[in-house]
């Protein structure tokens, strides 16, 4: 039983890490209907910039602030340079644009900071802690706490601020929002900037776990089933989706893997996601799009 609990809780905590990346997708999709394929590259860019600044003698918080500033500039550049010119284009055009942006960011990151792998220590020991015979990772617990704080902060931003109100209005009905004087471009800029901040937080946590290297951009692959299950437009859904994906893939790997072969951890979440697509296409918390034809 202890072993089962270890696998289950370890999976749930791993799922929180997936949610961190998924939240970035949700923010942009919610406000603009764009599936931002560049989210993984933004995670890489943020982590690589941060660690490179640390290695050049910046203090932790100075590096954090400078990286955040660079993410804001990046968000501004994407909004000004790409998205603004693609307003009212079909979703597939916007998706392809973010695909292109993804490759540009990856190339730019390696051009600026080099291709070598960097270690990143956040000062949190990744040692096992024992709770009633069950071993848990202190770093994973820290990551879960960070995710909770992030969700709380984003909820407050959306519900208690004027910007948040505008964001919700744009998410509900962009044309109506425009008609009451909300500037769509400004809102997009803000959303991309917030997504940049989320990328930085996710990049630091993932970077501390994997090392800061190109593979960070691949963590998006873990976020996709999370989004399908949780829904593309719900931050809460991203968290719940992450927990479901994390727990189910670990349990499947440990208990089903020996029966049908190892390595199913990568594709099992997609089986689950496809089942959700068949039964509940909008995901657990996604909004059903109703169009008059």
């Amino acid at each position: 039983m202890d072993f089962f609990l270890e696998v289950l809780i370890g999976g749930l905590l791993a799922g929180v890490m997936y949610s961190m990346v998924a939240i970035g997708f949700v923010l942009i999709f919610k406000a603009s209907g764009v599936f931002n394929f560049a989210q993984g590259s933004m995670v890489l860019f943020a982590a690589l910039t941060f660690v490179s600044l640390l290695e050049r003698g910046f203090a932790f918080w100075s590096a954090f602030a400078a990286t955040l500033a660079s993410m804001l500039v990046l968000a501004w550049a994407i909004e000004r340079g790409v998205l603004r010119h693609l307003v009212n284009r079909p979703p597939i055009t916007l998706f392809m644009a973010t695909l292109g942006v993804s490759f540009i960011i990856e190339g730019l990151a390696q051009l600026l900071w080099g291709a070598q792998v960097h270690g990143l220590e956040l000062g949190i020991k990744d040692e096992p802690l024992e709770f009633g015979g069950v071993l848990l990772s202190s770093f994973d617990l820290f990551a879960a706490g960070t995710a909770a704080a992030l969700v709380l902060a984003l909820s407050l931003l959306f519900s208690r601020t004027r910007i948040g109100l505008s964001l919700r209005a744009v998410a509900d009905d962009p044309l109506a929002a425009l008609s009451v004087g909300i500037r769509l471009q400004r809102i997009w800029g803000v959303v991309w900037a917030v997504a940049g901040f989320v990328s930085l937080v996710a990049g630091l946590l993932w970077g501390a776990r994997l090392g800061v290297q190109f593979s960070l951009s691949l963590v998006v692959l873990k976020a996709l089933p999370v989004l399908i299950i949780g829904g593309f437009s719900s931050i809460g859904g991203a968290i719940v989706g992450g927990l479901i994906v994390g727990a189910s893939e670990k349990l499947a790997e440990v208990y089903v893997g020996p029966l049908i072969g190892d390595g199913l951890e990568n594709w099992f979440p997609y089986v689950l996601a496809l089942l959700f697509l068949l039964v509940r296409p909008a995901g657990l918390f996604g909004e059903r799009a109703i169009e008059r034809v």
Binding site: V7, V219, K250, E253, V254, G257, E265, N266
Partner: peptide
Amino acid sequence: THIEVPHPGTEQQSQWLNIRR
């Protein structure tokens, strides 16, 4: 015992729990 880690290998919790067992 041969234990596979799916590419790229960013998550290995279940494999190492098996190893511990």
